[in-house]
Nucleic acid binder design. Sequence first.
DNA 1: GATGAATGAGCATTCATTCAT
DNA 2: AATGAATGAATGCTCATTCAT
Lengths: 204, 204, 204, 204
Amino acid sequence: MDPVNPDDTERAPRLSTRPLRADAQRNRARVLAAAQDAFAADGLAVPLDEIARRAGVGAGTVYRHFPTKEALFEAVILDRLTRMVRYAQSLAEADEPGPAFFEMLHRLVTGASGSRDLADALAGSDLASAGQITAAKRELTQAGEVLLRRAQTAGAARGDIDIDDLMALVTGATMALRQPGEASRRDAVYAVLRDGLRPPGRSG
Amino acid sequence: MDPVNPDDTERAPRLSTRPLRADAQRNRARVLAAAQDAFAADGLAVPLDEIARRAGVGAGTVYRHFPTKEALFEAVILDRLTRMVRYAQSLAEADEPGPAFFEMLHRLVTGASGSRDLADALAGSDLASAGQITAAKRELTQAGEVLLRRAQTAGAARGDIDIDDLMALVTGATMALRQPGEASRRDAVYAVLRDGLRPPGRSG
Amino acid sequence: MDPVNPDDTERAPRLSTRPLRADAQRNRARVLAAAQDAFAADGLAVPLDEIARRAGVGAGTVYRHFPTKEALFEAVILDRLTRMVRYAQSLAEADEPGPAFFEMLHRLVTGASGSRDLADALAGSDLASAGQITAAKRELTQAGEVLLRRAQTAGAARGDIDIDDLMALVTGATMALRQPGEASRRDAVYAVLRDGLRPPGRSG
Amino acid sequence: MDPVNPDDTERAPRLSTRPLRADAQRNRARVLAAAQDAFAADGLAVPLDEIARRAGVGAGTVYRHFPTKEALFEAVILDRLTRMVRYAQSLAEADEPGPAFFEMLHRLVTGASGSRDLADALAGSDLASAGQITAAKRELTQAGEVLLRRAQTAGAARGDIDIDDLMALVTGATMALRQPGEASRRDAVYAVLRDGLRPPGRSG
DNA sequence: GATGAATGAGCATTCATTCAT
DNA sequence: AATGAATGAATGCTCATTCAT
C-alpha cells in the first residue's frame, strides 16, 4: 500500500451508530474518491455539484454523508494525513534512524506532490484548519519529531532545526510541487532538501 | 528600500497621459495598498467590495482605476515582481557569483514570505496567470538563471539543478512561510535551502 | 390552437432525457409563462430577478432551466417563431396561392402584435440574434417566400417586392402594434398592407 | 434643409434665463449632436459617458445642460419631431392635397429610417414617453391629420382609416427600417404603404 | 436513503448621477 | 462653468445548502 496516496478507502468510523447499509457505504466511498480526485486537481474551488456528478450521486447524497463541503474536504485530507502518520509511526522504531528519517522525507515530498488539497491543508489554508485536521497535523508532527530527533542524535541530520522548521520545509516542497507540471521536479527538490538537512560538513 | 516588500507605493507610470488629479492619485494609492494587504492575507479570494471597503472608497472607484479584479491583482503582483527582478538584475554583475546568488536566494525567501498573493502568482495559480505577470515571472526567471549559472560555474552552487527547480524551491518556501506564524522560520528554511544548494561534499 | 400566440405551453422536447419531475415541469412552465409576459411587455430589458419573482421562484431556479437570460429569451421567441413557421408551412400547398398568402399575412400582423419581444427578435435586436433564433427566422423567411412567390406567380401579389421587403413590413407592423392601445388598429393596418401588396391596378 | 434629419442644432429655448455663454452654447450643441448620433445608432442603451466622450466634454457638462439622461433623449427626439411637425404644417395648405399627403408620408418613412431613437420614440418606448415628447407627437398627429383629411376629401387617400391608424403604419415602417441593413428597403416599404393608402379600386 | 430541484446570499461588473477640484 | 472622479444601486450569474418527491 502506498502510505500516502490511497487506493483503498478508509472505513468510516461512525461511532455508536448502526452500520451503514451496503449501498450507503458504497456511495460514501464513491463520494470520497471523487472528492479526492477533484480536490487534488483543483483545490477547494471545485463546486460540490461537480463532485457529486463525478461520484455519480445526487448532491443531497453528498450532504447525507458529510454535513458541509468543508467536512468533506476535511475527510479527504484526514484520510491522507492518517496514512502519513501511520507510516511515520511505523518508521519510528527502525534500526537506522538516518535512513528512516530520509525515507519519511522522501515519501512526504514525492507522495504529496501534485495534490493541491494536501498542500492547502498543510499550509493551513483558511477552510482547511478545522478541528480534526489540526489534530492530525499535530499527530504527524509528533511522529515526525521522533524521526527527526533520532536522526539528529545519530548525527544523520543537522541539529539546528526543529520539527516545525521541517514541517515548513515539507509544506513548501508540497506546495511547490502541487502544480501538475511541477511534479517532474520532485527529485531535484527532494535532493536539495535532503542535502540541506544533513549535518554541515558532511558529504552527500 | 526593501527590494521585495513595498513600503512606499510605486508611482504609477501612466505613460503619455496627464497625471491623475491629486485626489484620484490618493485613492488609487489607497486602493493599491488595501489590495496589497487583502490579497497578501487571503489571496484572490477576497471580495472586491472588501478591498473597496478597506480602502474607504466605493466599489466603482476601484473599477475606475483597475478595469477588473484580476487587473488589480496583476498590478499588486507586478509591483512586487518588478522589485524582485530589479534586485536580481542588480546582482547579476557582482564580483563574486556565489555570494550574489545566495544573497538573492536569501532575499527571495525572507522577503516574499507571508504574501499569499505572491505565492499564488509564483505558483501559477489559475487566475493569476494573466499576461504581464507571466512576462514578469519570465524576467525574474531569466535574471535568476544568470545568477544560478554564474554560481554553478564558480563552483558555489550544485550543478544538478536548473533554474526551474530553483524557482520551485523558492516558490515552495514562499508558500510555506506565508502563514503569519511561520515567518519566524525564515532563517531555518533559508539555511536548509542554502546548504542544500551548495555543491555536494562542501562544508557549510 | 392559435398558431402564433401560445395559450398552452409547448411541451418541452428534452430529447433522449428522462422527463422532468412534475414539480420541475411546473416551475419550468411558470418561468416560461412569466418570461413570455415580461418580455412581451418590456423586451429584454426586464431584470431576470423580476421574471423569477413573477414566476414565484428563486433566481437560481430560472438558471436551472435556462443557462442564461438570453437562452430564456430565445426559448420564448423560438416558441412563437416555431408556431409561425408551422403555420406558414401548412399554407404552402393550399389550393389558392393568393388567399393563402394573405391569410398568412393576416395571421402575422394580428397574431404577433403586442409582443415587444417578438418585434425585437424579428427586427434583429442586438441581444436577440443568437443562434437558434436566426435559424428560425430563416425558416420563417423561407416558408414565407414560398407563399409570396406563389401569390406573385398567380398574379395575386405585386411582383416588385421580395421576401425581405415583406418581412420588413411585417416586422414594422408588429412593432407598431406592440403597444397595448394600438392593438385595436390591427385591422386597419392589415387592410393597408393587404391592399398595398396587391398588384398595381387591381381593385381591392 | 432636410426636414427630418438635422444638420444644424436647434437653439435651446431656456426661457427667462440669461443667454448661455458662448462656450456653454457650443458645448450644448456638441452634446446634442453626439447624443443624436449615439441614440440613433444604439437607442437608449448607449451609456451617458459614451455620449460625453463623443462630444468631447465631461459627464458633468452633459448634466449641466440636461438634468437626466432621459431629458437628453427627449431633447434629441423633440428636435426631430419639431422638424417633422413644421414640415407637415408647411404642407397643410399646399394646392394639391394628394401629393402633399404622400410627400409627407415619403418624408416620414425615408427620413426616419435608420434612426433607432425616433423609432423608439414614435412607438412610445417606456423612457421616451415623457411630457414634451407626448405633446410633440400630438402636434405631429394633428398636422398629419390635416393632410390626411384633405387627401381623403380630395379622393386621393382611402377613407376608412384615421390618423392614428396612419401613425401606427408610419411607426411600423420606421421601426422596420431602423436596422442599418434595412435602410435599403425604404423604397419598397414606401411603395406598399403608398399603394395601400390609395382609395380602393384606384390604379397606382 | 437517494435524488436533484429550489433557494437565496454573494460576487464581479456597469452606469446614471453627484460633487470636489 | 467644466471636469472627471466617486458613488452605490442594480444586474447577471454561481454555488453551498435545504427540502419536496
